[in-house]
Design a binder for these strands. Structure first.
Lengths: 252, 252
DNA sequence: ACAACTTTTGTGAATAATTGACATGGTCAT
DNA sequence: ATGACCATGTCAATTATTCACAAAAGTTGT
């Protein structure tokens, strides 16, 4: 496969859905026809499917998440992308890591290096994404009841499952944070799971885009003292970042 | 949503990928323009995406499986569809059932009634499919290592997980069968899982299309005496069906 | 280094698909 | 019955896609 085709593939993987016009703008060194042919090529290898109106998307479990919470996936896409890229840089080889459910975690999954990793997750769609796209990581799915809203599992016996699993680094997502309430989420089950993960992981890295700062959700699962690092985006107010640092948390 | 739109949706859900020409032929009572408008309508509700060349597909976890073992999903599609429809008729309300991994099981998942069911499965893509498309069933995913080839989990502690789970009816797929060797599959892990399921379920229903009869795979997981019912397609030779019946197995 | 050949890319015409404006016919409340 | 409203169909205008071929770039053997 050519350099250009790889680039187009990567571009579409990021954007998920692009128009031909967009691509010809992006890859203006080549003609529309060439890009068309590349798309045909990529379609044959099942990397994407061509849609009408020049637009096309690539179909994997991405669609699974989009299918349900649709717009949310795209909202703040750039912020999440930034966070995912920064977080991926923290991943070492041969690490045993936990990856949370959620769209930010999905983006991190895509940015992950294709190396020997043990990735435990409660999000089956993220697990599938990794297994389909990368050759080297081992994915361990936590079992339990599959939640409709979050597409993540939660089981009464999560604790048992975690008992024999030694997680080095846990990447955890939060839906809200305030100084007073700590990190919170909307679901009770998620809350229990995150707590268990945080308790057992050696290092906890929180992923949270700036839109979630200063909002409160029903269930608090962690305080600043529970985490080691927080990865956020460039729009996060300096004041909050300073407060994080003051609490001894690394901020990226 | 209109009757016709529902029908188009169902049709596309079955075929996964159709051309406009195909649809106008199928729904010849209406004009192309109407069908076009319906597709636009359905696209807006995220039931499908429109592709070029009039062709369109609907994107959910279907893609997940196709993405990987591609052609296999489509091979013998009609046979598997027939089996899935017959098997779905065996599902009662409020049942606790197990659904195996595999393309036949995926089709059964699509045919399942949207009722109160507890569905345990080792195939996360099937679980997601159910949860996204149906409102009522509860899906329980078995945890474990996610296998790249089969997109199913297998864990050392499956037995523990099954211990607290009472499965009434298990729908199990086999990749091969001969009188001498019984039901067999290609993977050792699958084999162990299937055995455990069969041992714990009250009723075992085997799903196997006729192309798999008289073929042998490395690992045998069951004999005729272990199962209650076998669902196969109309191309299955009468002689084998007779042998099944002679062994006290119901054949559908 | 050169010619012969293959592969890739660009161009524009030919073809096909999609859209949009408008006409028709049906339903329903007034 | 009348007009508003909706679903549907028709056809023309627009736009996208393909096809055929030429130009350019890269490959190979001498």
């Amino acid at each position: 496969m050519k350099e250009r085709q790889e680039a187009i593939k990567r571009y579409i993987e990021r954007k998920s859905d692009v128009t031909l016009a967009e691509l010809t703008r992006e890859f203006s060194d080549w003609s529309e026809m060439t890009i068309r042919r590349d798309l045909e090529f990529l379609e044959q290898r099942r990397f994407l499917i061509r849609t009408k109106r020049g637009a096309r998307i690539m179909p994997t479990s991405y669609e699974v998440s989009v299918g349900m919470y649709g717009e949310r996936e795209k909202r703040n896409c750039d912020l999440k992308q930034e966070i995912a890229a920064k977080a991926a840089a923290l991943v070492e080889t041969d690490i045993s890591m936990y990856l949370d459910a959620g769209s930010t975690a999905m983006m991190l999954a895509r940015e992950l290096p294709d190396r020997n990793l043990i990735i435990t997750t409660s999000a089956p769609n993220i697990g599938i994404e990794i297994v389909l796209k990368k050759k080297n990581p081992t994915v361990i799915l936590l079992g339990g009841t599959l939640q409709r809203k979050t597409i993540s599992t939660c089981g009464l016996n999560v604790l048992d499952q975690l008992k024999t699993l030694n997680i080095d680094t846990a990447f955890v997502c939060a839906s809200g944070y305030t100084d007073a309430t700590g990190f919170s989420v909307g679901g009770q089950h998620e809350c229990v799971l995150k707590r268990a993960i945080i308790a057992s992981a050696r290092r906890v890295i929180m992923l949270m885009d700036s839109s979630k700062l200063n909002s409160i959700l029903p269930f608090t699962f962690a305080q600043l003292s529970d985490i080691d690092t927080i990865v956020t985006d460039s729009k996060a107010p300096e004041s909050i970042k300073a407060a994080f640092r003051a609490a001894g948390v690394h901020v990226l």
